[in-house]
């Protein structure tokens, strides 16, 4: 029971972090028509920016300032980089974001070094929030939960209940028509790219100290975020949300399960000491996202909620 409740909570938190990253990516995908390989690098930038800002001021200023800075970097990349590459087609755009990801990785290593930095949970939130079944639950995780849910609500409100959100949605599907109606589509695209990067940055700010802040964090998170976007359905926020939750929960539960192949397939005569029988469910957890990716592309190529194929 204890494992279930804690896995559920942790899974939801991980899922919300994944969604924060993939929501920006899926919006940018709808707009560009290609996946932005550098998206997780903006997540990493968020964590490092927050680490440096928190070092000279405090976490709360970093929480606001770091995502804004990441968003500005993203908007600049769109305006002065991607926009000129766009004319040369999707392959050029894809390669551009690919190169950008490596560029950001190297810059991060030059500025902050190759090892993990000591980006910590703020003291104010560094206490156990409540005790359940004799185990303590850290307050910072509850904080991540609240920030994520707040972000989710704000994103939903802006996209569905404001005129600016309607213009964005229309521009994603009918950019020419939106231009003919007098809306500045290039500026809309720059803003969406910037906002998407800012969301990734925010995920870095609140996730970097919960997980780890090192130069490998982008490379580790990047593929999983792609899985979320593809499984959810390219361009669908609802799909990305469902996929992020599903992945978050599945991965967390798999890690929490204390069982091996021998326990499950014991009736086949598999022993715990054999090589196959010794494989634990927990050790399979990192495989789950990619298994899902492969399966969904075979069975339902447009993803859970997507309206177009890859």
């Amino acid at each position: 029971m204890e494992t279930i409740v804690f896995s559920l909570l942790n899974g939801v938190i991980y899922g919300l972090l994944l969604f924060m990253l993939s929501s920006g990516l899926t919006l940018i995908f709808s707009m560009m028509g290609v996946l932005n390989f550098a998206h997780a690098s903006f997540y990493m930038l968020g964590a490092y920016f927050a680490y440096s800002i928190a070092g000279v001021t405090n976490f709360w200023i970093a929480l606001i300032l770091a995502p804004v800075l990441v968003g500005l970097v993203g908007a600049a990349v769109e305006k002065w980089g991607l926009r000129s590459v766009h004319a040369n087609g999707h392959v050029a755009e894809l390669l551009f974001t690919f190169g950008l990801a490596y560029l950001i990785d190297e810059v991060v290593k030059i500025i902050w070094g190759r090892n993990a930095v000591d980006y910590r949970v703020p003291e104010l939130l560094d206490f156990p929030m409540f005790e359940l079944f004799g185990a303590q639950y850290p307050a910072y995780r509850v904080f991540i939960l609240l920030v994520s849910v707040g972000m989710l609500a704000a994103l939903w409100f802006i996209l569905n209940r404001t005129r600016a959100g309607l213009i964005i949605q229309a521009a994603l599907t009918h950019p020419h028509m939106v231009g003919h109606l007098g809306h500045n589509v290039p500026r809309i695209f720059m803003s969406v790219f910037g906002a998407g990067c800012a969301l990734a940055g925010l995920a870095g700010v609140i996730g970097g100290n919960y997980l780890v802040t090192d130069p490998a964090m982008a490379v580790q998170m990047g593929p999983i975020v792609f899985v979320v976007v593809v499984v959810g359905g390219l361009g669908s926020l609802t799909g990305a949300f469902l996929a992020a939750m599903l992945l978050g929960l599945m991965q967390t539960f798999a890690v929490g399960i204390d069982a091996s192949f021998a326990d499950i397939f014991g009736w086949l005569g598999l022993s715990a000491t054999s090589e196959l029988g010794g494989i634990t469910i927990a050790s399979l957890a990192p495989m789950i996202p990619f298994l899902m990716l492969v399966l969904i592309l075979m069975v339902r190529p447009r993803g859970l909620m997507g309206d177009r194929e890859l």
């Binding site: 020419h176 231009g179 589509v185």
Partner: peptide, 27 residues
Amino acid sequence: ESYRIAHLGLGYVPESRDIFPMMTVRE
């Protein structure tokens, strides 16, 4: 750019109509 042309007072109703299907008539 097309949005500047629109702002000068030139409107365009394309053959493809291009309504936004997932939004209401009012939107």
